[in-house]
Amino acid sequence: MRLDMPASPAAAPALETRGLAKSLGGIPIARGIDFRLETGERRALIGPNGAGKTSFINLVTGHLAPSSGRIWVGGEDVTALPPEARVKRGIGRTFQINTLFAALSVLENVLLPLSERRGIAGRMFRAAAADAGLAEEGWALLERLGLAEDAARPVRELPYGRQRLVEIAIAIALRPKVLLLDEPAAGVPSAEAGIIIETIAGLPRDIAVLIVEHDMDLVFRVARRITVLVQGAVLVEGTPSEIAADPRVRAVYLGEAAAS
């Protein structure tokens, strides 16, 4: 029994990790990460390439198992839970590289997570369309994200920027408590990035959002606090202006710029 465990679920942060460590092939990708994300917080996770940002997300979602350390979601220890069980506890994520149901329509792409969230996805003998409110909720979500006009189109026919929006729509459909966005605007032309930034900025206030991003415009626009990850460890955490002024952060980024 650890004395420093979160006291009660009510006061517990949306997401917390302590001493999270992981090595892949002898190379440490997470070195004792202590991280805390409060309910409704907007946080950016930045760091040079290979800092372990995506690995950290994979550890939190359960796609990677940590060598040591623990993870809590809303005060509950989820370290031993498989990814699908963590989703039920409120973890939602998007992928850095589009991971969509490419041959299915945009509408079906959001109906799948909605069915999972409602717990009806295992039902075999009733038409999916018979579920009251399911299609309506999917439709409302697409309208909110400006995807309604493409609802019937297969996702693979959409332009890349619209596909990134579907990436987010699938995660939002789960109504997560903690939303992990892995470079949501990566590769999106700046003309199309606006709708993605607006969507993220307009997320309900009770969702805690962690956004991994290189685009500093987006980071400053969305995040109130920033965590800087370097070589699998937290270098510093602070407000955007603190981070922008921090000499260590500048050294890391300048060093990277000089190396490349």
């Binding site: 979602t61 796609h63 990814p83 699908e84 069980a85 989703v87 039920k88 994520r93 992928f95 991971t99 969509l100 149901f101 490419a102 041959a103 299915l104 079906e108 109906l111 799948l112 997570p113 069915s115 999972e116 969230r117 009806i120 996805a121 295992g122 039902r123 075999m124 003998f125 009733r126 038409a127 999916a128 369309a129 579920d131 699938i170 459909a173 789960l174």
Partner: peptide, 29 residues
């Protein structure tokens, strides 16, 4: 026919398209 038009049947097409994403939306793949 009932199965393929059920939520279960739809989730099968989801598995065909991306098992990784199905896991990430909480499906017992």
């Amino acid at each position: 026919r009932r199965i393929v038009h059920s939520p279960f049947g739809h989730s099968l097409t989801g598995l065909r398209e991306s098992a990784i994403r199905m896991r990430a939306i909480g499906a017992p793949v």
